[in-house]
Design a protein around this nucleic acid. Sequence first.
DNA 1: GCTGATCTTGACCATACGGTCAGGATAATC
DNA 2: GATTATCCTGACCGTATGGTCAAGATCAGC
Lengths: 211, 211
Amino acid sequence: MPQPVRSSSKKDRRQESETLILAAAEKVFSEAGFGGATMQLIADVAGLPKANLHYYFPTKEALYRQVVQNIFQIWLQAADIFDAADGPAEGLGAYIDAKMEISRRHPEGSKVWATEVMHGAPVIQDYLETTLLDWTDGRAKVIERWIEEGRMDPIDPRHLLYMLWATTQHYADFGHQIETLNGGKSLSNAQWEAAKTSVKQIILRGIGALD
Amino acid sequence: MPQPVRSSSKKDRRQESETLILAAAEKVFSEAGFGGATMQLIADVAGLPKANLHYYFPTKEALYRQVVQNIFQIWLQAADIFDAADGPAEGLGAYIDAKMEISRRHPEGSKVWATEVMHGAPVIQDYLETTLLDWTDGRAKVIERWIEEGRMDPIDPRHLLYMLWATTQHYADFGHQIETLNGGKSLSNAQWEAAKTSVKQIILRGIGALD
DNA sequence: GCTGATCTTGACCATACGGTCAGGATAATC
DNA sequence: GATTATCCTGACCGTATGGTCAAGATCAGC
């Protein structure tokens, strides 16, 4: 029995435990959904007794809420690339790359987010109505400017954004299906590159940003 | 209190009850996931006592399995249009229309399917490995032929299919998010048409099938 | 209207779950 | 090394859930 390593100072311990629990929770929630996940299983994955979870997070819902909020932050962060861009080919291309990378490195988070939204966003509805709405309006304006400047075809910005989200997140949310259709093997580096290239080519060409 | 109508003959009764239960189950599963759904709630939605559900479906899992299988049938059915087509613009355009229509009319089914796959397809893994794999291979061949005939750009057929699925199903799976970003109102007829048009335009143009 | 098969259901059961708590361990501060 | 605040955890509890069952209702066929 190896002793659990506790190399942290007093100050960090709370955060360290919370991070450990949140990682375990994200994994379990993504695999079983909120209803299917159990605090006992999360505790087992984290390697802690169940009661310890309730010390840091009073309820299952509080833990879940924190998981979803963390995911939302990553989600928004990918937009920074969008803003810094000069035109649609560069900006949207970089955004697609960033979101594909998130789907690859952080698929659990994407799944939790997807499940939450599919079930009517009971926990993060307020985020959708405020932060996400503002974010979307802002990007839509950028896209509209690109259209006015003649740098891409006149496309409804909303539907373009939905398409970007749908396509990139599909590689995380439906990763299991893709893997099965890939002979049971997860995508290789080359296949991930091909995916990114295909998505970028179709969308950027489809909106007339590559001519 | 209105009397429950029982206009059926003996022969139909079983099927009628099963259909009623399956409809309720699809709704509840789509809103709460497998783990979050309860047999009691499904029974309430169906307007039947819980014990009656267990007469027709021995376990919650058997009921769920039947729901998912029914959805899978609808999923595959949309492919008929694909086959009858002459070229990519016609075939893929009709396929997009068909899948968008399913997303609009049958969003619950899409959500159940998505959740099932996201959780690793514990119930329908065999379908993925057999029926879906065959289906995908078949369509990929059709797309490859179109490419050889010079009727569209050389795109990896798999990634194109993933994009079609992702984009069209997004309008069902993330319908709540779209609705919220639409000011809390569900998409109007005109907006649905705009969605279909945008998706078709971007994809068909993006693969070089519209020039 | 009797019979047998199918259907219906209220009451019940075992289990598993989220959450609580009291008491003990740990470690920083003086 | 005494004090104090924080952290840890085994044992426990009330509840809700999936599932069972036996007794009754319904109805086609005769």
